[in-house]
Design a binder for these strands. Structure first.
Length: 338
DNA sequence: AATACCCCCAACCGCAGGTAT
DNA sequence: TATACCTGCGGTTGGGGGTAT
């Protein structure tokens, strides 16, 4: 059975998002939370399909996103996780808070792949690449490789009942001294022999967590205390059939005022709010609207006394400490953040 | 300065899985 | 059980910006 297209594309806008569209989407989600995406564009006044809105929010506008290049540690983690998980970008991303699968995928394809190849490592198998043999008349097969790395073939252990994937390998650059030492969890694959089920008998256990199941953050770490006025969802009819999340962020959380991912203390993502505010995404005429939304999020208030919200001047943070940047669209006046 | 080429990444496409009816 | 819907996921593309010639 064929599937319907995600939306009727007639009359819908495609291509890069404008600042105005971003503003509408952010404002809508600030006010109403994430609801059924198919309804979002209509309710938010956007000529986009819901899928496009979801992607824009998930990959770009979400307040908990980090921006900028991956750090060295993050890169090492990506390499290590890729060696264990393959191209399961969402799984990899779930281990890097603030990073999206798309971002990691792009970074992999544009940076890490090349780096690994340069180091003589096959980015797919994470094994040494075969040497490049210049064409000769002699068609003798290439000599077997001696693995220069610590990488050990998984198959070597396949005969044991308990299969332990290799510890993170060291990626050594043949051309420089650069060494990437990856410290990670060990994936232990428990074979069927120890259990009764067939395919499902194999499970991957990564030290203290199962990569397929464990959320990065617990619900109590995400949601605000419930003793305050929580903004209700836009509509009770909105489907929340999918409870899965990206990067551990609740998919149906009307308040993304959340605990800091790395700390236990509850914080609103002030970086994001300040960035949005100072980036001029909201014009003067819209400040009340934005402030109102912010106030609801910060103070859980519906009725806003705007005087209680700090003005632009007093709300201005030390921008140097902020990693979140909106830097890809001139319309957003990013220079204010730089 | 003009053009060609390359790189990067946001966005799109289409399929799969889960859930509601 | 079958169907429809919604969302997540991974692969791919297109265009803007930077660099080389």
């Amino acid at each position: 059975m064929g599937r319907q297209p995600c939306c009727d594309k007639v009359g819908l806008k495609q291509g890069p998002w404008t600042a105005d569209e971003d503003k509408k989407l952010i404002n809508f989600i600030l006010t109403n939370g994430q609801c059924c995406w198919r309804a979002v564009p209509k309710l938010a006044g956007l000529l986009r399909c819901g899928k496009s809105c979801r992607l824009r929010w998930t990959n770009y506008l979400r307040p908990d996103l980090k921006r900028g290049l991956l750090s060295e540690d993050e890169e090492k983690m990506v390499i290590d996780l890729h060696a264990q998980l393959g191209n399961r970008w969402s799984k990899i991303a779930s281990n890097l808070p603030g990073r999206t699968d798309n971002e990691i995928k792009n970074h992999w394809n544009t940076h890490i792949k090349k780096k690994l190849k340069k180091m003589g490592i096959d980015p797919v198998t994470h094994k040494p690449l075969p040497p490049v043999i210049p064409p000769t008349d002699n068609q003798s097969p290439p000599a077997p490789l001696t693995p220069p790395l610590q990488a050990q073939s998984v198959h070597a252990a396949s005969q044991t009942e308990k299969l332990v994937l290799p510890k993170p390998m060291e990626y050594q650059n043949n051309e420089s001294i650069e060494t990437i030492s990856i410290q990670s969890s060990t994936i232990t694959e428990v074979s069927k022999d120890e259990h009764e089920d067939d395919e499902q008998s194999k499970r991957i256990v990564v030290d203290d967590f199962c990569t397929d199941e464990v959320p990065l953050i617990q619900p109590h770490e995400i949601l605000l205390p419930s003793d305050t006025n929580i903004l209700p969802p836009l509509s009770s009819s909105c489907s929340s059939s999918s409870t899965s999340s990206t990067n551990g962020v609740s998919a149906y959380n009307p308040n993304f005022v959340q605990h800091d991912l790395n700390q236990s203390m509850p914080t609103i993502d002030q970086q994001w709010c300040t960035s949005i505010f100072n980036a001029g995404l909201w014009g003067d005429d819209d400040n009340d609207e934005f402030i109102s939304s912010l106030n609801m999020l910060i103070n859980d208030q519906y009725e806003t006394d705007h005087t209680t919200i700090q003005s632009d001047a007093t709300f201005a943070p030390d921008l140097n400490q902020y990693s979140k940047m909106f830097m890809y669209d001139d319309d957003w006046k990013f220079e204010q953040l730089l």
